[in-house]
Amino acid sequence: MKIGDIVARKSYNKDIIFKIVGFSVDEDNHKMAVLKGVAFRIIADAYLDDLEAVKLPDIKNVFIDKNVEGVLSQSLVKARERQKKMMRAVPKLQTNTNVYGMPGKVLQIDGDKEYLKICLDVYTELGIPAVGVAIPEANQYKEVRALLEKHNPDILVITGHDALTSRKGNITDLSNYRNSLNFIKAVKQARKWQPNIDNLVIFAGACQSNYEQIINAGANYASSPGRIMIHALDPVFVVEKIACSRIDIVVPIDEVIDQTVTGIKGVGGLETRGKFRWAMPKSILY
């Protein structure tokens, strides 16, 4: 076994595909592999004899399986329907070909550069302007304010990998999570820059993250209420609903959650206004 190998854990019936990203030793000096989920935002460790090498298909096919493809297609359809509905709500827009829409701009700070690339590809497919920066979770809080000042986004995503390290432990104790405290610190720094939760919409968290404390820190949406694994694209699906809903609409929480892969156990949040604006004209050249 070496760094970069694609593996599954035999003790978990090989339910999740991981990539080996490092090695460590336990208190008895037994070697363990540090693992990151390929399609889920979870980090874990396992003894080497519990791992089995698996063949990885195209990584985008792992991310966007039939279930996720359905969610993505649904998002695309809903986005088109939403735009038509918004135009019907404003009669002057129906016949004006010089009108164009401006979804909210996204800044995604991600602890996983491979996940980030695929998320950015999906934002492009959904027609949402987005920039992304890959930063290890432990350093995100140090850089978030400078990135906010540079990009001035409408929506901020702070994500990467996380895990509840001991299910027998106190789930309110942040020391039992790999990165929840790092996400909380980053959210707090972002809120110092922009305290208004409608001016800057924040999604934060990853697999099994401490949802309640991330929300209390100032996030609009977070994971994971049920301490379950969330799909790598769940933050994107939350963002799409907010970014493409009009600024005069409070987006229903249940509609946001219904649009995710993992549902109410994976994602929750607060009432939040949309970020979509109509604009005109497209261009006037003299």
Score class of each variant (00 low, 15 high):
3 I>N: 03
12 Y>G: 01
16 I>G: 01
17 I>V: 15
18 F>V: 01
22 G>C: 05
28 D>L: 13
30 H>L: 14
42 I>G: 00
52 E>N: 00
61 N>Y: 11
61 N>D: 15
62 V>M: 14
69 E>F: 12
70 G>Q: 11
71 V>L: 07
76 L>P: 03
81 E>N: 14
82 R>D: 13
83 Q>N: 09
86 M>T: 10
88 R>G: 04
89 A>I: 02
90 V>E: 15
92 K>G: 10
93 L>N: 11
94 Q>L: 15
94 Q>D: 02
96 N>L: 11
100 Y>I: 06
101 G>Y: 12
104 G>D: 02
120 L>R: 06
120 L>T: 04
122 V>T: 08
125 E>P: 04
133 V>Q: 10
135 I>L: 10
141 Y>C: 08
147 L>A: 07
149 E>I: 11
151 H>S: 07
155 I>E: 02
156 L>H: 06
156 L>P: 06
159 T>K: 08
160 G>Q: 09
169 G>T: 08
170 N>R: 02
172 T>K: 14
175 S>V: 09
177 Y>R: 07
184 I>T: 08
187 V>M: 07
193 W>G: 00
195 P>Q: 12
195 P>K: 15
197 I>M: 14
199 N>D: 15
200 L>P: 03
210 N>V: 07
214 I>N: 03
215 I>L: 15
219 A>K: 08
227 R>F: 13
231 H>F: 09
237 F>T: 03
239 V>H: 06
242 I>H: 03
243 A>L: 02
245 S>R: 05
248 D>I: 10
251 V>L: 06
277 R>Q: 13
284 I>F: 12
